[in-house]
């Protein structure tokens, strides 16, 4: 009797999630397969997707590069935090999380202030007599914006994995004659694999779908798929084509996270 009652508590939640996550995805599919004016079934939105493959490719490139840079920069930080005392760990963890909670738009605008032609960095360069640089509206600026915004998403899962690594394993490796570099390569790194994979996913997914960073920090040649979808949906009034692109983006992300999960699963199996 009591068991049945508490099971009933999950019913509203299941209904809510079906109504507001599954059904909306179905509606996206419906729009992707209908004509904007007549509402009749059509393949034309799907056929048009081919035109956008270069933009997809560009988005994937930018977000992969950003995710890898995040990994290279984030790993030492996560490693450092994981090897502090308990209180210091909490403080540093909070300091990594704090920027994630602050307005992502304003923080990106601050980078515009730093990088623009008459921005802080160029003013400093000019003050010491160096020539001004073209920093904004470059591919590098877009990557910088992505790395800056999503680096915490890399550090946090890395930290959670590294902090759980059994210290005795590292001591054992050292006792058995491994140099610190060998210990790292043979013990610490393989054991951090789940964190690395989830960090890569957590950076890749928002980066591949962003539209604000590329609009603010990029130029005419750094249009990403998020920009195209946003323009079609909000300004171009072609919600149907926008829906078709969203569908493709979603499939892309699900395939990527699926691959990551599969790799993560195998990795864990190898370790155990």
């Amino acid at each position: 009797m009591k068991k049945n009652n508490s099971i009933l508590l999950s019913t509203p939640y299941i209904l809510w999630m079906v109504a507001f996550t599954l059904i909306p995805l179905g509606v996206v599919g419906y729009y992707a397969l209908t004509d904007p004016d007549t509402g009749v079934f059509t393949w034309s939105n799907i056929r048009e997707l081919g035109t956008y493959l270069p933009v997809f490719g560009q988005s994937i490139m930018y977000s992969l590069v950003s995710a890898l840079i995040c990994l290279i920069l984030g790993y030492p930080v996560a490693y450092y935090i994981a090897h502090r005392g308990a209180v210091m760990q909490k403080i540093l963890y909070m300091l990594v999380m704090l920027p994630m909670c602050m307005s992502f738009l304003l923080r990106t605008l601050a980078w515009v202030g730093l990088l623009q032609d008459t921005g802080i960095i160029n003013n400093l360069l000019a003050a010491v007599g160096l020539p001004r640089l073209q920093l904004i509206r470059t591919p590098a600026a877009v990557v910088l914006g992505m790395v800056y915004n999503y680096l915490p998403y890399m550090i946090l899962p890395l930290y959670s994995t590294i902090v759980k690594i059994d210290h005795r394993l590292i001591e054992a490796a050292e006792d058995l004659g491994c140099t610190p570099a060998e210990t790292f390569r043979k013990v610490t790194l393989p054991l951090s694999m789940p964190g690395i994979l989830s960090g890569l996913t957590m950076v890749f997914v928002p980066a591949v779908s962003t539209f604000y960073i590329s609009q603010k920090l990029g130029g005419a040649d750094t249009v990403l798929i998020g920009d195209v979808i946003e323009r079609l949906y909000k300004q171009g009034n072609n919600a149907n084509l926008g829906a078709a692109l969203s569908l493709l983006l979603m499939i892309l992300v699900f395939v990527c996270t699926g691959i990551m999960n599969r790799l993560g699963g195998d990795e864990e199996a190898v370790v155990v």
């Binding site: 299941i14 909306p24 979808i229």
Partner: peptide, 26 residues
């Protein structure tokens, strides 16, 4: 149910936003 919970977490925000917007408009 937990994989249902994960959908909004793994889907890009832009897809979640557009899907809800289309649902409400529809």
């Amino acid at each position: 149910v937990m994989s249902l919970t994960n959908i909004p977490m793994t889907n890009p925000d832009i897809v979640t936003g557009i899907s809800l917007s289309l649902l409400f408009v529809f």
